[in-house]
C-alpha cells in the first residue's frame, strides 16, 4: 500500500462524499416547526402563569420550596392512615360494662 494510493483514495473519498445541499423548502419547514413549538410552549406557559401570582411563580421556581408540599402531603397521608388504624382498634376494643366484666374475668381466670 503506497502513500500515493492512500492520498488518491482520500481524494476520491472527498469527491464521492461531497456535502449535499439541503432542498430549499427544508429550511422553511424546519424553521416553521420550531417556531410553532416555541409559540405553543410560550402560550402554555403564559396561560399557566396567569393562574398564579408573581410571588407564587417565583416560589415555584425554587426547588427548595417543593419539599414543603411533599412533606405536607406525606404527613397528611401518615396521619390519615394512623387515624384509620386507631379507629379500627377502637372498634375492636369492647367498652363499658362488658369490658369491665371481661377484665375481671381475666384476673379471676387467667388463661
Amino acid at each position: 500500500m503506497t502513500g500515493e494510493s492512500h492520498l488518491n483514495l482520500e481524494e476520491l473519498l472527498g469527491d464521492a462524499l461531497r456535502p449535499i445541499e439541503p432542498p430549499d423548502d427544508l429550511a422553511t419547514r424546519v424553521e416553521s416547526t420550531l417556531a410553532t413549538i416555541a409559540e405553543q410552549a410560550a402560550a402554555e406557559l403564559s396561560s399557566w402563569a396567569e393562574e398564579l401570582s408573581a410571588s407564587e411563580l417565583e416560589a415555584l421556581r425554587d426547588p427548595r420550596n417543593w419539599v414543603r408540599p411533599v412533606v405536607a402531603v406525606a404527613a397528611g397521608t401518615v396521619a390519615g392512615g394512623a387515624l384509620v388504624v386507631v379507629g379500627m382498634r377502637r372498634r375492636r376494643r369492647p367498652a363499658g360494662l362488658r369490658a369491665t366484666a371481661e377484665q375481671v374475668l381475666k384476673q379471676v381466670r387467667p388463661s
Binding site: 445541499e21 427544508l26 424546519v30
Partner: peptide
C-alpha cells in the same frame, strides 16, 4: 449546520425524503 446534518442524514439513509425527515427530527 443544516447542511452538515442533512449531508450526514442523506449518506446514512440513502434518499432525500427520509434525510429531510431525519434532519427535521434532529433539529427538534
Amino acid at each position: 449546520h443544516l447542511r452538515d446534518v442533512y449531508s450526514y442524514a442523506y449518506y446514512r439513509v440513502g434518499n432525500h425524503h427520509d434525510a429531510e425527515d431525519l434532519t427535521e427530527q434532529a433539529f427538534l
